[in-house]
Design a protein around this nucleic acid. Structure first.
Lengths: 201, 201
DNA sequence: TTGTTTTTTGAACAGTGTTCAGATTTTTCT
DNA sequence: AGAAAAATCTGAACACTGTTCAAAAAACAA
């Protein structure tokens, strides 16, 4: 049975990802150091590089877990929303809450950058699909005129718009809405987009 | 006359900022190295730290210049747009074009982060005001019901929504709209928001 | 010119991600 | 079980950063 090796390796991997997740949650993405991760995971510095090719891949692993949790949160919203506008607002509200409740991990998800010229692995890109998965259905009800292809693009655009409001606000940077008004502003934005989608009277 | 010193100092400062701008434009924010900047500016490594407290401040200086140019571009759009909806679309189009024409500098503007816990200087935060300055007027025409305070917040939200679409697309990351559809999608988004703002028939 | 002050320099430092020769552990073979 | 071979793990060493600061150079004052 050669799976004792695999078990150990899998255990080490899990410990590294858990350590990285904790450190990012506590000190932010920029506070993630290889030496801290390995110390917390209880292994040598070099061990990290026997599991992941580099730190970026460890971060991506953490981000994939964050995306999975976000996907669950978004899919778990109350069903039986016959009104597509209400459904879209509900999704946006869940998104805002998740970002606020997982601030550091959420920031790591969107602030992490691969080195110049490094292409994003497919498995990583694909993991982001949960962000728009739930939008298509209510949007299709709202906009039966859109082709399936344009529907996907538009869903991405709606997500990006909501995301932009949350992102700029939480950046605590400058042109973002005041932090205590993120939710109201996001909901107002979705309301605008929903109203704007209705056929003219 | 002790202003010979000041002149030299100002000249060095200008050379450093110009060098940094060029390097960011060519190799991206992450490709900006203190040694490259000083070499290109024709001074010693340490000279950088006699002008700026650290590299972050040099980046902020570059970003302020980018913001100023962007402010000019936004203010320069055709006047005589009596239709507020058309004005907002025009602003969005200018924003998209600027981002596409100044890709690396635009990314540097929004991807640069101060170290954890470092507060943003006021002069830097204030420089971002140009991003929303032109939005308030047409929005006020469109939404005479909004209080001045809410008008500002809503202008920030509209900007953040448009920015989010551009940002996620140009990140070439995942959930962004295909790059060749940035402009159409942004304009569609603004159209939605404008239509949604109209009083019910 | 000579002494004093200011400015500039770049070698040295500290903190980072990553590597890899050797030590350690596990597996294989008799 | 014991020994040899293979796989794995280790952490010192390396390469590349931003930043500092003692010393050199330049500017100025007398």
């Amino acid at each position: 049975m050669g799976n004792k090796r695999d078990e150990k390796r899998e255990d080490l991997r899990a410990r590294l990802v858990a350590a990285a997740e904790t450190l990012i949650a506590e000190h932010g993405l920029s506070g993630l150091k290889a030496r801290d991760v390995t110390e917390r995971a209880g292994c040598a510095l070099g061990a990290l590089y026997t599991v992941f090719p580099d730190l970026d891949h460890l971060v991506m692993e953490v981000n994939v877990r964050t995306l999975a949790r976000m996907g669950e949160a978004l899919a778990l919203r109350l069903p039986a929303d016959r009104d597509p506008g209400a459904a879209l607002k509900e999704l946006a509200a869940v998104y805002v809450d998740f970002a606020l409740d997982n601030l550091a991990l959420w920031k790591a998800l969107f602030n992490h950058r691969l080195p110049e010229g490094t292409p994003m692995p497919d498995w990583y890109r694909d993991a982001h699909e949960v962000l728009i998965r739930e939008i298509a259905a209510p949007l299709a009800t709202l906009r039966p005129d859109l082709t399936p292809e344009l529907l996907v693009t538009r869903a991405k655009t709606l997500f990006a718009a909501v995301h932009g409001v949350v992102h700029l606000s939480l950046q605590a940077r400058f042109v973002g809405a005041p932090r205590d008004q993120i939710k109201p502003e996001v909901l107002a934005l979705v309301e605008l987009m929903v109203r704007g989608s209705r056929p003219d009277a």
